[in-house]
Amino acid sequence: MVVCDHVEGVVSAPQGPFWGPLAHGFACGAHIPVHVSSPWNALDDPVHDYARNRETLADSWGVTTAADWSRQVDYLLAGMNVGPEVDAVLDVRRVLLRHQGHYDLLTWENAVATWARRHGGDVDEMVRLAGVVTRYESRFRTDGLLPHDGMVTSVFGYDFGRAVNMARWGFGGRFCDYPTAERIVLRAGELCRQHYTSWADFSAGYALGRVIRFDEEQYGHMYVSVLGPHRLLTGDRTSPWWHVPFA
């Protein structure tokens, strides 16, 4: 049984959006502010949060200039930070299910190997990812990140959700103006709607992207720190996921 990091609750900014596309975009980035008990629906303050944001961006992202920041935003919105390999593996499974109606891990691994050879992918790494996804999805079902028969459809949501927070930190660190940050939040929301069908679907994809990127099947802090926000965002009636439609 996982013991989650303590999460206080869903904090909202009274002046922030609660409805509409901008609220939806902010809600796609809600995992991180919920984890640190910050408002989900606001950008950081370029006066109060300036030094902290600059330090965070430099230490965690190597971002020290506006050009660095803009480049990271572009990578995130293109899904290039988490990378396309996992989604390629998930796409192979989707094709198997469409054609056969079922699959097992060995069949999936063989199909992934065939796809990788045809498309110049790293065969061993992509086959390994099929097993990694299978084990994480099993744990997700146990912990409520997925329903008992659920599967992750895409991991790009992890990058899109982080793009929302990059906009938040970029404005707070004075790397962009408010309209630029708002456009990023809206674009991230649009991309999430293209890849997912519900908040639960999105959150499972976000979580899988995070743990594949950082957790290395340790089920440690990187897993716990996404499970807690997921549970709060899907279970607390004050969460934006209860009142902002995903579609």
Rank of each mutant, 00 (worst) to 15 (best):
122 D>S: 10
34 V>E: 05
103 Y>A: 12
73 V>D: 01
31 H>G: 02
116 A>P: 06
39 P>E: 12
132 V>H: 03
114 T>N: 09
113 A>N: 04
24 H>N: 03
119 H>D: 07
28 C>N: 06
73 V>E: 01
59 D>K: 11
62 G>R: 08
127 V>W: 06
75 Y>W: 13
127 V>M: 12
51 A>N: 08
104 D>I: 00
94 R>M: 10
20 G>P: 06
30 A>E: 10
122 D>V: 02
54 R>Q: 14
77 L>C: 01
122 D>M: 00
103 Y>W: 15
64 T>Q: 14
32 I>C: 12
65 T>Q: 08
93 R>I: 08
35 H>M: 15
29 G>F: 02
80 M>D: 14
93 R>K: 14
127 V>E: 08
29 G>S: 07
96 L>R: 13
80 M>P: 00
18 F>S: 13
55 E>S: 12
122 D>R: 07
94 R>K: 14
89 V>T: 01
103 Y>Q: 09
37 S>V: 02
110 N>S: 14
33 P>Y: 04
100 Q>S: 10
101 G>Q: 08
73 V>Q: 02
32 I>M: 13
119 H>L: 02
88 A>L: 12
61 W>P: 02
42 A>W: 03
72 Q>M: 12
67 A>S: 14
49 D>Y: 02
63 V>L: 03
26 F>V: 06
28 C>T: 12
68 D>N: 14
104 D>P: 00
86 V>A: 15
97 L>V: 12
57 L>H: 05
23 A>R: 07
51 A>E: 14
81 N>P: 00
61 W>E: 15
121 G>V: 01
60 S>N: 11
111 A>I: 05
128 R>T: 01
68 D>T: 08
119 H>V: 05
75 Y>A: 07
42 A>L: 05
56 T>N: 12
80 M>R: 15
34 V>D: 07
93 R>A: 03
82 V>D: 05
132 V>C: 04
103 Y>R: 06
43 L>M: 09
